[in-house]
Amino acid sequence: MADTPQRPVARTRPLSPHLTIYRWPVTMMTSITHRATGMGLSVGAVILAWWLVSISNGPEGWQGFHAVSDTPVGLVVLFGLTWSLVYHFLNGVRHLAWDLGYGFAKQTAERNSVLIFALSILGALAIFAFTWTGHGGYLQ
């Protein structure tokens, strides 16, 4: 027993209070969402690879991709990726502004957090509305 006195201590060491204790400020939400959208976009990069390969495989490849992407689940995933990219883009620009020393004031940071959530949802909706109203496909 007394041979390894440090063993049980390592498991029971106290943690300072964090996620479960404090009220979640909106800046915390934007920080966590930035990480979550980044992880989601990592999966999106694999889907981008699949899309490029499907194009290189000619008509059958293209149809194979669209057989999945045109389903309701596929559209939900694409909408999620669209919103993630818009969000990560906007909040990423804010991170670069922070690196330059701008936007740290408490009120500014909170206002910008709400603004980024709102703009990212509006941006993703606008992108989908743009194509659904027939304005997409202008590269044809």
Partner: peptide, 26 residues
């Protein structure tokens, strides 16, 4: 991140431009 600002905007322009077209266009 800085490089991806213009590249992401271009990517969005391309994705919208190719939406609803055929594989020939892409």
């Amino acid at each position: 991140a800085v490089a991806l600002i213009p590249l992401s905007l271009w990517f969005a322009y391309v994705m919208l431009g190719l939406a609803g077209t055929s594989e020939v266009t892409a």
